[in-house]
Design a protein around this nucleic acid. Structure first.
Lengths: 204, 204
DNA sequence: ACTTTTGTCAACCAAATGGTTAAACTGTTT
DNA sequence: AAACAGTTTAACCATTTGGTTGACAAAAGT
């Protein structure tokens, strides 16, 4: 009988840390709580990740590297713009619904320390993906298929419509006087109705 | 010569507390920092507001009561829907640009404790304002002036488009590869282009 | 079998932090 | 000018918190 080491302690810690950091932020997270959630001694946290800061950085980098490719892969296809919009809003809303604390976590910590991004990932292609999208939009404008619009604003529109209802849930739920279940339903509808809305706004 | 007490200590504290709490959140805020910013002894904080919790509640209530009426007053007019949309996006983006930490602060703390809203303000009219807007939208749909759309989704669209680019600035700035100045310019453009976008999306 | 390395833990430590206290100061009343 | 109430401060306290240490067990070499 080979003793099966249930799971790498290092990753057990990282998973526990993700949960605590993403829910409570750097300032609100407690090392003891992470240790408890991981089912190990607090000293282990320092054995594997030397300090709270280092552990936090690992969590942050992990979040960024899960998030960023999702955006990129959808946008970086050869599809028609409308298909891209449909694809992006559908899949992205789905993704962040399942990781609803992540975007807020990233924004908060980035607010605290704008340098985190540089440390987190070896700045990938990113900008030329945006370039590509801009070119595609400009092309459709020239062809008269869509209204004249600033591509950067359009990108902001699409991201805002997808992300904000998820991260602003506790506030928006209250404004719309919804319970948890019917608010979730509202989000689900958005997976298709956001694209419809955006396309209606730009189509000629 | 009556000695002019420069400013009420109580409000000096509240102003300092607002700044610290809204930038760092409940967990990240330090009583000492608030005292320093207010230029007084730390014991004064407890003299006027008994605990960190109570001081926080005062700040949170103040934020809510500054925020909520702004939304209400604009929506609760007799204007045409399009005028309302133009008015709301223009003034609301302007407002939160000047208080950019407030929406994020509210969302964060509401996330931590969803009960905060109940404590913060004696739940005003609110819901029947939303009712009124819904009725107006349904009316325009019936008249064939705008596309058929779920009024709640439309409200989510408008709020998302207005708020998210402001609170997501550190992230979006990076995605769009903008410096501070040109990002600010982008936000300014949104004061008019968001309304245009929304109206294009729903007008028939 | 033995030594070395790696992993784990309970106990501990120093600094930070929210909160308290008792004395002192300030302006007003008597 | 004495008494008084409201305000302010320095020093202090108890708890929490990130981090460390030394003992010890479990593998891994040899």
């Amino acid at each position: 009988m080979t003793k099966v080491k249930e799971q790498n302690t290092e990753t057990v810690i990282l998973e526990a840390a993700k949960e605590v950091f993403q829910h409570k932020g750097m300032a609100g997270a407690r090392m003891q709580e992470i240790a408890d959630k991981a089912g190990i001694n607090k000293a282990m946290l320092h054995y594997y990740y030397r300090s709270k800061d280092k552990l936090f950085s690992a969590v942050f980098a992990s979040a960024i590297n899960l998030m960023a490719p999702k955006i990129m892969k959808i946008i970086n296809t050869e599809d028609h713009l409308f298909a891209k919009i449909e694809n992006f809003t559908y899949k992205y809303i789905d993704f962040i619904s399942k990781h609803s604390y992540m975007p807020l976590f990233i924004i908060n910590e980035l607010n605290r320390n704008p340098n985190l991004l540089k440390d987190a990932f070896a700045n990938k292609i990113e900008n030329n993906i945006e370039q590509k999208l801009v070119a595609q939009i400009d092309d459709l404008i020239a062809k008269g298929e869509i209204r004249s619009i600033n591509p950067e604003q359009l990108l902001l529109h699409i991201i805002s419509l997808s992300v904000f209802p998820v991260i602003g849930k506790p506030l928006l739920k209250n404004i719309l006087q919804k319970d948890d279940k019917s608010y979730k339903q509202l989000i689900k509808e958005r997976q298709t109705c956001v694209a419809e809305f955006v396309i209606n706004a730009i189509k000629l």
